[in-house]
């Protein structure tokens, strides 16, 4: 049993890392633009499809396919920002929060149906990064999962370094804390919006492309992960990057261990997705701003 729980914990860690990648993108977008991107799951889906087709049709090696797909989705994100979200900041829209919710929600439905039309309804799977399984004692875990979590860690560290160490990162953080003050310091907030939305989209794409060989590719694949990401960023305290990563790992573990330690064993899986939400409710009751949240953040 101990061995089993240990393996479950490892499994939860891997899932948590993948959640973190996607939630990180959402957090980045939220903290800079103060917009909850409801179309995030579809960017994740697009990332998965692009990486799949690059590998299948053009023979890209899997890792290169992931990176290329991130670049493509980065530019899709940039286009979305310019076309649909820019009006929020130029004062062209009266009710900004509502506009942002409706436009990203609409985009989500549009992209889902577009994918259904363009890519077809059939479930796909991108080629393995590393085939086979690795044995841990008597239990085995697929190499894909190990490889993907390693890559997820690499992407995450890269993101943290860019945000923490570079001038660009300081600019992003400055805009996220105070748009006007950042502008006074010579930072172009529009450029930062563009960059944040593009980078956030690319991170979502990375999540989707990495998950491709593990959890399969289909037009609606983003629906569940995006809900998980919302749970994570609220749990972590809206906009906190540290909170986002920690909350992802907690959610991964809570789901993985929660569903096997659930009192009624035959129902554990049925409540798996609910466990995260339950956890969220409890945390918010004790700490309304989330684990690492400061005060309530809103669009100015």
């Amino acid at each position: 049993m101990t061995e089993y729980l240990l393996l479950q914990a490892l499994n939860g860690l891997i899932i948590g890392l993948i959640y973190a990648l996607m939630a990180l993108g959402l957090t980045l977008i939220f903290s800079v633009l103060k917009i909850v991107n409801f179309a995030h799951g579809e960017l994740y889906m697009l990332g998965a499809y692009f990486s799949y087709y690059l590998a299948k049709l053009f023979g890209f090696p899997p890792v290169l396919a992931v990176l290329s797909s991130m670049i493509i989705v980065f530019f899709i994100g940039v286009v979305i920002e310019v076309l649909f979200l820019r009006p929020v900041y130029t004062g062209a829209v009266e009710r900004k929060d509502e506009y942002a919710i409706l436009i990203t929600f609409g985009l989500s439905i549009f992209l889902q149906n577009l994918a259904l039309f363009v890519f077809g309804p059939w479930t796909r799977r991108s080629p393995s990064f590393m085939s086979g399984t690795t044995s841990v004692y008597s239990l085995s875990i697929s190499n894909d999962r190990l490889f993907v979590s390693a890559l997820a860690v690499v992407f995450m560290i890269a993101t943290l370094v860019i945000i923490g160490r570079t001038f660009m990162g300081k600019g992003l953080r400055a805009v996220s804390q105070d748009r006007e003050a950042a502008a006074i310091a010579g930072i172009n907030p529009f450029k930062m919006n563009l960059l944040a939305f593009g980078a956030g989209s690319a991170l979502a794409a990375a999540g989707g492309a990495l998950i491709g060989p593990i959890f399969l590719i289909f037009p609606t694949m983003g629906a569940m992960p995006v809900i998980k990401s919302f749970v994570i960023i609220v749990l972590g305290g809206m906009g906190s990057i540290k909170g986002c990563i920690i909350a992802s790992l907690i959610l991964g573990e809570a789901e993985s261990l929660g569903s096997v330690l659930f009192p009624d064993l035959t129902r554990g899986l049925a409540y798996k997705n609910a466990i995260g939400l339950l956890f969220l409710v409890v945390v918010l009751l004790v700490k309304p701003t989330g684990l690492f949240g400061e005060k309530h953040v809103r669009m100015k």
Binding site: F167, M168, K170, G171, R173, A174, Q177, D178, E180, A181, A182, A183, I184, A185, G186, I187, N188, E294
Partner: peptide, 30 residues
Amino acid sequence: AKKGIGRTFQVTRIFRRMSVMENMMVPALS
């Protein structure tokens, strides 16, 4: 700001979740 006009605020607008040094380096991007 880039043309050479700087300003401060009545209620200060520093970046609270950044160190003093990081605050100073925000304009570096431009």
